[in-house]
Amino acid sequence: MRGIEPNPKGIENRSPLKKNAASLRLWHWLSALVICGSLITVLINSTLLDRGNSGLVKQELVQAGAQVDDQQARAVIHGMEDQVWGIHTYFGYTLAALLVFRIISELFQDKNQRLFNKLKTAYQNYIVKPKERRLARHELLTKALYLAYYFLLTLMVITGICIAFDKELGISKSLSHQLKEIHGFIMYLIIAFIIVHIFGVFLAERKEGKGIVSDMINGG
C-alpha cells in the first residue's frame, strides 16, 4: 500500500509574491485613463472652444440663417466651454477617489510592495553595493520620481477641490484665481512626468527591464 505523501502548506509552498499588487495595477491603468480624459478636456477648451473662435461660431450661425452678434457668439462659446469644464470636474472627482484608493491600498499591501520600503531598499542598495551602484542609482531615482509624482498628484487634487468648492470653502476670487494658476502649472509638471515615464519604460523594455509593461498588466 502506497503511503500518503505529505503536502505541507508552509511558506515554501505559497505562491510567489508578484512584483506589482493587483490594487496598484488597477490604480495605474484607471488613473492613466482618467488623466488622459482630463487632459483631453483641457485641450478641447484651449483650442476648439477658445474665446478667439467666437468669430468662427458667429460666421457659421449667420450662414445658417441666424441673427447673431459678437456677444451672443461669445456666449455660445462660453456655454460649451462650461460644459466641457463640467466633464473635467468629474474627471477630477474620479482622480481624487483613485488617490484615496491608492493611499488606503498602500497601507494594506505587503511591506515589500510598499513604495517607501522600495525607496528605502533602493537607497540601501545604492550605499552598500558599490559594484551595482549604477543599477541601484537608477532604481533609487525611479522610486524618487514616483514619490514626487504622488506629491504632485496630491497637490493637483487638493487645488482642484478648492477650485470646485471655492464658494463653499469661502475662498476669495483672487485666491481661487491663484489656485487655478497653481493647478495649471502642476498639470504641466505631471505631463512632463508622463513623458519621462513613457520614455523610461521604452528604454527599460530594450534593456534590463524587459517585460515591465506586461508586469504592470499581469503582476510580474
Rank of each mutant, 00 (worst) to 15 (best):
79 G>W: 10
32 A>M: 10
5 E>D: 15
212 I>W: 01
140 L>T: 00
19 K>P: 06
164 A>Y: 08
143 K>H: 14
77 I>S: 10
58 K>A: 09
113 Q>N: 13
88 H>V: 02
49 L>T: 11
49 L>P: 05
60 E>K: 15
106 E>F: 00
180 K>L: 07
48 L>Q: 08
17 L>V: 07
117 N>R: 06
33 L>N: 02
215 D>E: 13
127 I>K: 13
18 K>E: 14
43 L>H: 04
135 L>T: 05
108 F>W: 11
152 L>F: 09
76 V>H: 03
92 G>I: 05
6 P>A: 09
198 I>L: 11
70 D>G: 08
22 A>K: 03
155 L>I: 15
48 L>N: 00
142 T>Q: 09
101 F>M: 10
35 I>N: 04
7 N>K: 15
180 K>F: 08
117 N>K: 08
89 T>Y: 07
31 S>G: 07
126 Y>H: 02
217 I>E: 03
135 L>F: 10
18 K>F: 14
194 I>V: 14
119 L>E: 01
37 G>F: 01
113 Q>E: 04
22 A>Q: 05
6 P>Q: 09
111 K>S: 10
119 L>K: 00
217 I>N: 02
190 I>R: 03
21 A>M: 01
37 G>Y: 00
39 L>Y: 11
42 V>D: 06
119 L>P: 00
197 H>P: 01
182 I>H: 03
28 H>D: 06
108 F>S: 12
